[in-house]
């Protein structure tokens, strides 16, 4: 704020003041007042007018200047009320109070949404917990009645889709609800492998692993979900025959690298940069098997939260290799 701008804002008051002064001087002149008295009057009127306007300008300026300064410095602009100067004038009070009210109603509106999101997340978790019970019954029944393996494969697909929803909800939420523990990478790979055993065998995929028994810090369930999604993709996008899936791990500097390789149909060059995008289905996802385009998006989000780097290398018609840098995780160690 500049003095000039302040005067411009108050142009009417300035003009009235100047007009009154001129009128007064003319009147005094008309009544033939002593010339010295006239000069003193003019001087006093102009000086007092100037001082009054300057004083009022400086007062306003100090408030607005600090206000604009702190607004400029803040990245979260809505926190302005915490840094603002104590209001002294009535006008400042109006501004501060209205800011306070606006802020409050906005926070309430946001909290409402937050609560809805949390409630929705809780509902999804409970619902999934509920739906896993009939799925368990189905699997047990299939096993006891010695039903076809195809039926089990369908139930597993259902279970995988449900897990996708669960981990989507978890990955979208800002709070970190994973638990870091020391787990053996070999145990994680074993659990995922057994989960996919029937599908791998049914599709005559040559499955092999070369995993060093190594303790890593991770959330086991999250890592299992990540690897499971990738293996599911490898099974989905396999070639007609002689399919291979290989999982291997090795150490690079302070990191453990996990590689999941398949000799499937691969990913076209034009698609590879976008495979982690939300709802991206790509050429394969549209032509071969229906895909939601969410699987790898969720995988990427979970990896980000756990602090893992994930890349995909692929050559169309040849192979796909997913590389996950499991990190040293020293951060999590106490």
């Amino acid at each position: 704020m500049k003095y000039k701008d302040y005067l411009k804002d108050n142009i009417v008051s300035v003009l009235i003041y100047l007009f009154t002064t001129i009128l007064l001087v003319t009147l005094l002149f008309a009544f033939k007042t002593n010339i010295y008295l006239l000069i003193i009057c003019i001087f006093l009127l102009l000086v007092s007018g100037f001082i009054i306007s300057l004083y009022s300008f400086l007062r306003k300026n100090s408030f607005y200047k600090s206000y604009l300064n702190s607004l400029d410095k803040l990245t979260e602009k809505y926190l302005i009320l915490e840094t603002i100067k104590e209001p002294t004038t009535y006008e400042e009070k109006i501004i501060v109070n209205s800011l306070y009210d606006i802020n409050k109603s906005m926070i309430e509106a946001i909290n409402e949404y937050k609560r809805n999101t949390v409630e929705f997340k809780e509902f999804v978790e409970i619902w999934i917990h509920e739906v896993k019970i009939p799925i368990s019954s189905m699997i047990l029944k299939c096993h006891n009645q010695k039903y076809d393996k195809d039926l089990l494969s369908i139930i597993r697909r259902l279970d995988n889709s449900i897990d996708e929803v669960l981990y989507y909800v978890r990955s979208e939420n800002t709070e970190k609800d994973f638990v870091i523990n020391e787990v053996d990478l070999k145990d994680v790979i074993r659990d995922v492998s057994i989960k996919n055993k029937d599908d791998l065998l049914l599709n005559s995929i040559d499955f092999s692993t070369s995993i060093n028994s190594k303790s890593i810090s991770t959330d086991r369930k999250w890592l299992e979900f990540i690897i499971n999604q990738i293996i599911n993709n490898s099974i989905k996008y396999k070639k007609e025959k002689d399919s291979i899936i290989t999982i291997s791990s090795y150490d690079k500097e302070d990191k453990t690298i996990l590689e999941i390789y398949d000799n499937g149909i691969g990913i076209p060059r034009s698609d590879i940069k976008r495979v982690f995008d939300k709802s991206f289905t790509g050429t394969n996802g549209r032509s071969k098997v229906k895909s939601t385009g969410m699987g790898l998006y969720i995988v990427k989000k979970l990896c980000d939260k756990l602090g893992y780097n994930i890349y995909i290398e692929s050559e169309e018609g040849n192979y796909t290799k997913v590389i996950i840098e499991l990190g040293s995780n020293d951060l999590y160690k106490i």
């Binding site: 978790e125 999934i128 917990h129 509920e130 896993k132 019970i133 368990s136 897990d163 669960l166 609800d177 994973f178 638990v179 523990n181 959330d219 086991r220 369930k221």
Partner: peptide, 10 residues
């Protein structure tokens, strides 16, 4: 359990 989380396990 049918709850997919590490807390219950621990």
């Amino acid at each position: 359990t049918s709850r997919e989380n590490e807390v219950d396990e621990v």
